[in-house]
Design a protein around this nucleic acid. Structure first.
Lengths: 157, 157
DNA sequence: TATTGTTATACTCTATAACTATA
DNA sequence: TATAGTTATAGAGTATAACAATA
């Protein structure tokens, strides 16, 4: 009566039952992000960047004279946690800090030519790394992903 | 000629320009997850649980006699990092550890009645917390989200 | 020899209080 | 009195090496 011996799944890992987690959007979003994140990290590591450093550099390139408080708010990073990241970018000659004459508490951040070039190169690598995953989705699924992300971004608060 | 004085946006925060990050699926997925995660954490904290503890408890309820190595693999947590989580659940009377007679290296994990009840209560709270955000999406956007998450999950490797 | 659970440890990420210099 | 950048620090979260017990 038992199928144990002849069951082809006898040696396979027993499938895990999940009646709750798989229905939670938060859990599923985290899993999806965790699948993409390592590829992004590896791509950026080739240029000696981590995700947070690249994000800062990219916004500094796009917003000359941005100050750290604005950067922190845009990236949802606490100001103290930004300091070492900015220090590193500056020491590597990718950005400069210039005291703002009209408010000497602030430093205007500017990307150097080298910083702009590195941003572009790293962004290309990132897009290629993502495409390695996203391009494997069916076109309708890619559309659905873009639509869902747009909608989540548009939520107030 | 300048519009500075009469410009209604003169005092508003200058909009941040972003030519790169907003087009990266990884960055957008992270932002979406970071928007949901605090609500989930708050919901679970009402029952004295953190996300990882709830995830473990939920899979133990769904898979009686699961062992820690299986749990770690299912949740993509390193085994050492599971130990204190399991200790806590056991000390609170939510699960029990029973030595497996046929392989005494392993402990079979079982949820207690109290553990099953807490899982159900916490799962309800989590769903309500998520609905506070997800329900604000248009039905088509919710569908797109489910479709995108399904597709990302189905990707091999 | 390999695996399970465990210990110890380290490294990253994130969060908060408090200082300084400026406003 | 308030704000920008900074310092110090603490807490999560995550990762690896190595051990004892068992297979």
């Amino acid at each position: 009566m038992t199928r144990q011996v002849h069951d082809v799944t006898a040696d396979a890992e027993p499938a895990i039952v999940d009646t709750v987690l798989g229905d939670l959007a938060g859990y599923r979003l985290k899993r999806a992000y965790m699948r993409i994140r390592p590829a992004a990290g590896q791509a950026l590591a080739q240029d000696g960047l981590r995700v947070v450093g690249f994000s800062c550099l990219s916004l500094i390139v796009d917003n000359p004279a941005i100050v750290q408080a604005q950067l922190a708010e845009a990236l949802q990073i606490e100001r103290p946690n930004l300091v070492l990241v900015i220090d590193d970018l500056e020491q590597r000659g990718l950005i400069t800090r210039r005291k703002v004459p009209t408010d000497r508490r602030r430093y205007a951040l500017h990307a150097t030519l080298q910083g702009r070039r590195l941003r572009d190169r790293a962004a290309d690598r990132l897009r290629r790394a993502e495409d390695g995953l996203i391009a494997r989705l069916a076109p309708e699924d890619r559309q659905a992903l873009q639509r869902a992300l747009d909608a989540l971004e548009a939520l107030q608060d």
